[in-house]
Design a binder for these strands. Structure first.
Lengths: 230, 230
DNA sequence: AGGCGCTTGTGAAGAGGTGCACAAATCGCG
DNA sequence: CGCGATTTGTGCACCTCTTCACAAGCGCCT
């Protein structure tokens, strides 16, 4: 599930503060989910906690990392060293969680040769050579939208089967290739919607505003974290 | 729904290429969803297409933007001008979609005064003054994880009710405040999991590898776009 | 050794999203 | 004016995810 990485992060935090075991309740509240859901998730792993005690933190970390395939450090290739790509190249959150940026690529010749974080930007045409040098398991696309599909095609052509796409567009890829997308503007638009909904509700508490804002329970927007603790 | 922004993006692309109307089928394939789902989504808006013809692109854009509250340009305050914050400040995808970065804030005095994209970085203590100057509707947190909760508390204190959190941690906020989070490392970890699963399946097609990889249909990871077209 | 409290693992019920298939409605053409 | 082609809107069945509630198991204390 997509929640496993969140559990993992919380577990690492617990391990650093010296906890040896966690109850499902404790871990669940740290992540912000229902404890039953967490237990069910963990039971799918086949991982065993001990009843009456809880889960062994270190053991659980190993189990989850094993399932996520994080036992080995994965090399990622980053294509597009513009504004966003530059930030990603320098983001230390990757290295600290088992990912190594192995190559920086860009189509712009004026960017080729630039040095970022000890890595030299190479031309995107060298992609196949880069993949030959290192075992690239994930490709990250941080190009403008018009270039994204072509880059994706090239990545697929050289054997990359997992792509993280930051370009605001839909990618067409053959079966067997996984694509996840992150669109920063979409996140803002969803917040804007909530903002708009809240404004309507407070302004027109009786009528409820438009049809949408009056829907029972509002609209479900996945991944929205709402009202945890105080 | 969280799909509305994606529809909106596709619609803008269609409008630019001169289309005046779209069928649900056409728009659905452009976004990569089922046409029935799209029709149901749009029907929730109360927005009417005309049977036998399709949807009026311009009208639909207006409808969706109205629902999302994008009729007015929303001002966002960005806290944390590190690697990621720097990129976000320079990201032009915000302005082009109705968001204006109205303020840059950071706790590091050495960063205060820096000029990014025509905006001067101010100290985070000035937050209340910034909010007084402009109507900030969304706060973006791009600080390191340890500082995120404090920043969130301050944002809430000055009246911000929508927060986009890039820090890898769970935020506690009072009811009525919406938080969305984007964790770049989590996205990579999910891809890593798929990579790992695919590797196990090809290596051990008979046994199916671990218990997890043998689950029927694999594990559901929301937002994963898989095998669209060729 | 036995009982008690605590926690896991899981069956079952509930809720929500998804997709199919079809009726209703609209346009264009003869 | 009427008919057929086309497309929306939606009832229905299915399926997954979520949540509750409880039995089973483990450790500790007496």
């Amino acid at each position: 599930m997509s929640r496993l990485p969140e559990y993992l992060r919380a577990l690492h935090a617990l391990a650093e503060t010296g906890h040896e075991t966690v109850s499902s309740e404790g871990l669940a509240s740290a992540v912000g989910v229902n404890s039953a859901k967490l237990r069910k998730d963990l039971s799918h792993l086949g991982s065993y906690g001990t009843r009456g005690v809880g889960y062994d933190v270190a053991l659980l970390i190993d189990q989850i990392e094993s399932v996520l395939g994080l036992t080995q450090c994965r090399a990622v290739a980053l294509v597009g060293v513009g504004n966003l790509g530059h930030a990603l190249a320098g983001y230390d959150g990757f290295a600290s969680r088992g990912f190594r940026i192995a190559a920086l690529l860009d189509a712009d010749p004026s960017r080729v040769g630039e040095r970022i974080n000890g890595l030299v930007v190479r031309h995107v045409d060298e992609l196949s050579r880069v993949v030959a040098e290192e075992t690239i398991s994930i490709g990250v696309i941080a190009t403008p939208a018009p270039a994204a599909q072509a880059v994706a095609d090239e990545l697929v052509a050289v054997g990359v089967t997992s792509i993280l796409n930051f370009a605001p567009c839909v990618l067409s890829v053959p079966e067997g290739v996984d694509v996840r997308k992150v669109d920063l503007a979409i996140e803002l638009q969803i917040l804007s919607f909530h903002e708009h909904r809240k404004a309507s509700l407070t302004a027109l508490p009786a009528t409820g505003g438009s049809a949408l804002t009056a829907l029972p329970g509002g609209l479900a927007t996945t991944d929205t974290q709402e009202a945890i603790g105080t």
